[in-house]
Amino acid sequence: MRELQLASYDYFLPKVQIATHPIFPKEAAKLLVYERAQDKITHATFKDFSKFLPPDTLLVFNNTKVLPARLYGTKVIQDSKAQTQTSGAKIEALFHKEISPNVYLMQFKGRLKVGHLVSFGQGIFARILKSQQIESQNPDTQGVGFKEAEFFRVSQPQTKSSQSFPQDSLESPLSRKEFFEFLEHFGHIPLPPYLKRKDTQEDKNDYQSVFAKHLGAIAAPTASLHFSEESYHDLKNRFDSTEITLHVGAGTFIGVNAENILEHKMHKEQFFLTQDSANKIQNASHITAIGTTAVRVIEEFARNGALSGECDLFLHPQNKPLKTQAILTNFHLPKTTLLMLVASFIGLDKTKQLYEEAIAQNYRFYSYGDGMLIL
C-alpha cells in the first residue's frame, strides 16, 4: 500500500525555497488554505488567517519554550603523566532531556566513548556515562550518538587553562538549576541542521513563539512562529482558545528509516495540559490545532485521557485524528513523521498535490517558511 511506503513521502524541493530567515512582518508570510469539504485551495497571507476559521472553533496553542540547547566544547584526554588535558578535538552537543538528577540525554557530534570528558569552558565538564549509536539515512544524523552524560564543575582554580584540570581536582556536580543556568548563558539556539548556518542573536527571538512559557523544547513548534503579539492577542479576543505544552525533542532531527512506516518507532516527547484545557478540548465541537505538536497532545489526550506523560503517538493515513478538525502547519521535510501527520488529515495523494502547488507558487519551506491551513 503506497501510503505505508516511506518512498511515497519523498519530494523534490528547490534549495532556493528553503527559508533560512523569517519574513517580517510575520503576517506577510504566505498561507495556503485547503478546505476539504469543497476541495478548494486558496492562496492568502497570514494577515487573513482568522477570516478562514469557523467562528466556533477552539484554537489550541503549544506554549513550549525553546532552550538554548546546543553547546560547543572540546574533547579531553589523559596524558602519560596522569594529567588530564584537552585533545583539541571540537565537540558539538545537543541537550535533549533530563533522565535523572544530573544525568542528561545528549546528542554528540564527535568520537566519544563511555568515560570520556568534554570541556565546555568556565570550568564546566561533561562525562559520558552511557552510549547509544543511532542508525539514520539522514546525513545530518549519521554518526551522531545519543549518550547519557553527567555535568560537573572543577572546584579548584584551573592550573593550565580553562580547558584542562589536574587529575586530583575536586568535582562538584551541577545542580539542576545550575545546569539550566549554564545552558541559558552559554548555550546556542538549536536551529535545524538544514538551515546550514550558525545561530545569531536575532534567532533567540525569531525562533521562539510570542506565547512561549515553559522551557524544555529543543526545536520550535514552527507554525506558532507566524504570530506577532498583535495577531496572537487578536485571535485570543475573537476565538475561544487554550494552551497545552509539548516539549519538542529528539525526533525532530531524526528521519524515518523503516521502508514500511508502521515499523517506525516514534520518539517520546513530554507533554502537559491543565484540567481546564482538557475540559475545553473534550467539550469542543471544532478544534483548530496550531501546529503538529498541538495535534499530538490533543490526540494523545483523546486516546488515553492523561494530563501529562510522554507522547509517542504516530499519526499517519491509517491512524487518523479523532478529535482535531483543522490544523495550521508549516511545510515539512520529506520522509518525516510530520509530513505523515499532515497526510493523516487529507491522505497521501492530496498532501503531495498541495506540496506540489506550494512549490509551484514559490512558497518558502520548513521552520522559517510559509504555512498551510487545512480545514
Rank of each mutant, 00 (worst) to 15 (best):
Q132P: 04
A220L: 12
G291E: 00
N138E: 10
L4Y: 13
P139M: 04
P193R: 01
Q38L: 14
S209E: 11
E310Y: 15
I374L: 15
N304C: 06
N330L: 04
F61A: 00
A126T: 10
K109E: 09
Y34H: 09
I124C: 03
H316G: 01
L322C: 07
E356F: 07
A360R: 15
A360E: 14
S172C: 11
G143M: 11
L322P: 04
E263W: 08
Y363K: 08
F301S: 00
P68M: 00
F186K: 02
D312M: 03
Q156E: 12
F24Y: 15
D276T: 10
P321G: 02
Q275M: 06
A69S: 10
I298C: 12
Q270E: 13
G187F: 05
M106A: 01
R127K: 15
G291A: 02
D203S: 06
S162M: 09
V76E: 03
L313G: 00
L322K: 15
V76T: 10
R36K: 15
T274W: 01
H21P: 03
I244Q: 00
N63W: 06
V144S: 05
E357M: 13
D349I: 08
H214Y: 15
P14D: 07
E35Y: 11
E3F: 15
I287Y: 04
Y368E: 02
A37S: 13
D370Y: 13
L333E: 01
H264S: 05
D140E: 13
Q38V: 09
D206T: 12
L59F: 11
T242S: 02
K352W: 07
G347R: 09
P317E: 00
A69G: 07
A358I: 09
V114N: 11
N304K: 03
D312P: 04
E259F: 07
K47H: 11
L94A: 01
L67F: 13
P22E: 02
L6Y: 11
H116A: 06
E171L: 14
K213N: 12
R364P: 13
K323V: 11
Y232S: 00
T329R: 04
F52M: 04
P22N: 02
L58N: 01
L6H: 11
S367E: 02
H316N: 08
M106P: 02
N205C: 14
Y355T: 06
H267S: 03
K236Y: 04
N260L: 12
A212C: 14
E230R: 09
H185G: 02
N279I: 04
I359P: 04
Y363L: 06
L32D: 01
E269L: 06
